[in-house]
Amino acid sequence: MRVFVFFAAVATVLMLHAPARADDAAPATLTVIGKVGTSNRPGFDPFRDAFFKFHGKEFEKAFAFDRAALKALPQRTVTAKAAPWPKPVTASGPPLKDVLDAAGVADDATVTLFALDGYGVTLSPADRAARDWVLAIEMDGTPLAIGGRGPAWLLYDTGDGTASEDAEAKWVWSVFVIAAE
């Protein structure tokens, strides 16, 4: 009996530490749709893309990022504080420009970032150039989670200052899709 228990334990440990299959790719946490120059996923499918359908986001081309792909881009850390917050936060993630560049979005495109609840903020090329926008995936050293401000949060560095509530309104959190026009 001991031999059976030993082999069962070894088999369990080996299964838990076995490499993931190639078809166990990490799910996308952010998708750039619309005028993308590079596509790494199929176009919109009303059945498979039920949440996109719910939000009326149909597309022919898209570039999807999982957390590892966002983490593989250059990272930037910002300190941000808005008027109603109790304290500043330290957030890190790739610059928005690098995310858009990876998807092949032109510098002259207008982009709209949408949150899981449908809230969206549109940034013109001039709006994007006016700030060093970061698409944070971590806050205070912890990955952003859905149900908090994740999977991604658009914001910029306020340094020692405090952003107004109007400025904070452009800091979209729970970003899941960016539409490029």
Rank of each mutant, 00 (worst) to 15 (best):
R2A: 14
R2F: 14
A9Q: 05
V10K: 05
A11G: 15
T12Q: 08
V13S: 08
M15L: 15
P19Q: 06
A20W: 03
A22E: 13
A26E: 10
P27G: 09
P27S: 07
P27A: 11
V32I: 15
V32C: 05
T38S: 10
T38V: 15
S39Y: 00
P42E: 08
R48M: 05
D49Y: 05
D49E: 10
F51I: 02
F54H: 12
F54T: 07
A62S: 09
A68V: 06
A69H: 01
K71Y: 09
A72S: 15
A83L: 15
P88W: 06
V89M: 14
G93W: 02
G93R: 05
P95M: 09
L96F: 05
V99K: 01
V99A: 02
V99Y: 00
A102I: 07
G104T: 04
V105M: 01
V105N: 00
A106H: 07
D107L: 08
T110W: 05
T110R: 08
T112I: 05
T112G: 08
A115N: 07
Y119K: 14
V121M: 03
P125I: 04
A129P: 03
R131K: 15
D132W: 04
I137T: 04
A145C: 00
A145E: 15
I146P: 00
R149A: 14
A152R: 03
A152D: 06
A152P: 06
T158P: 03
T158K: 09
G159K: 09
E165G: 13
V172G: 00
S174P: 00
V177F: 02
